[in-house]
């Protein structure tokens, strides 16, 4: 599934007080690749993937999702599914009922949706926690529930909005490895929003660097590290070169974003 965004504009508020969040963003996100979207806080990167996911309407522009090559299972509902920064798990539902939520909404019978949910829960390493509620789990485990809830929909596009930002450093590493494993196995098209440069390099086939508000695409960095990726690659010279390049690009934008905030305060 290739995603093409064409002249995407998102403006909030009524004229003359409109705030431009996205300014004519045009990009082709390659099919079955991981694209990381890197940018300073408030650059509209979350807004962009919510527009791509059909969760928010945009002011103008187009999102086209086109089939490329062989098609797998027909997904339930739309082509993409979101993994949210703050997870948005349903606190009153058990793990299995959280994971089965989407299947339930599409009218799947209880037995079948629970079977599928259980299989997915086991594959993210949460076997035995099916009847727990989110509040009874650790942060990393909740993250796995959120991932399972998205994956069980078998949609070809996975949209991830800073999913690991709230995790501690060790849990984050484990979850990154989990995602690499999922990608190698399923070859989904993944859009991964992050503000962590090392995360973007480790996970991405390319990195889209965005400017401070209004969000535009500043540059696209291809990541030519071999797959499957491992945490050890972080220490290679190739990784270091990519890091320096991304850091150089992002530093200007972070400074620019800070200047904007200063102006807003004064």
């Amino acid at each position: 599934m290739e995603i093409v965004v064409d002249n995407l504009v998102q403006a909030f508020g009524d004229a003359p007080h409109t705030i431009l969040a996205l300014d004519r963003v045009t990009h082709r996100f390659p099919a079955e690749r991981v694209t990381c979207i890197l940018g300073p806080s408030g650059c509209g990167k979350s807004t962009m993937i919510q527009i791509i996911g059909g969760i928010e309407p945009c002011t103008s522009g187009d999102v086209t999702i086109s089939e490329s090559g062989g098609s797998g299972n027909r997904p339930l509902g739309s082509q993409s599914v979101m993994v949210w920064q703050n997870l948005n798990l349903f606190p009153w539902r058990t793990v299995v009922d959280n994971v089965a939520f989407g299947l339930e909404m599409h009218g799947m019978a209880r037995k079948e949706r629970h079977d599928r949910a259980r299989a997915m829960i086991a594959s993210v390493g949460l076997r035995g926690f099916e009847q727990h509620r989110p509040a009874q789990l650790s942060g990393g485990m909740r993250q796995r529930v959120a991932l399972a809830r998205a994956l069980v929909m078998e949609r070809p596009i996975l949209l991830m909005d800073e999913p690991f930002a709230a995790l501690d450093a060790q849990t984050k590493i484990v979850m990154q490895e989990e995602l690499i494993r999922i990608y190698e196995r399923s070859k989904k098209t993944i859009l991964f929003v992050t503000h962590a440069i090392d995360e973007a390099i480790l996970l991405g086939d390319e990195i889209v660097v965005m400017t401070a508000r209004p969000g535009r695409i500043k540059d696209v960095i291809p990541v030519d590290l071999p797959r499957p990726r491992t945490q050890e690659m972080v220490n290679t010279p190739a990784f270091g070169r990519l890091y320096d390049r991304a850091l150089h690009l992002i530093r200007e934008e972070v400074l620019s974003a800070m200047r904007q905030q200063d102006q807003a305060v004064h």
Binding site: Q50, G53, G54, I55, L76, G77, S78, V81, M82, W84, N88, F101, G102, M105, H106, R149, M153
Partner: peptide, 9 residues
């Protein structure tokens, strides 16, 4: 929003 994304009417 999450429910909508997962296909809830």
């Amino acid at each position: 929003k999450a429910a909508k994304d997962l296909g809830a009417t």
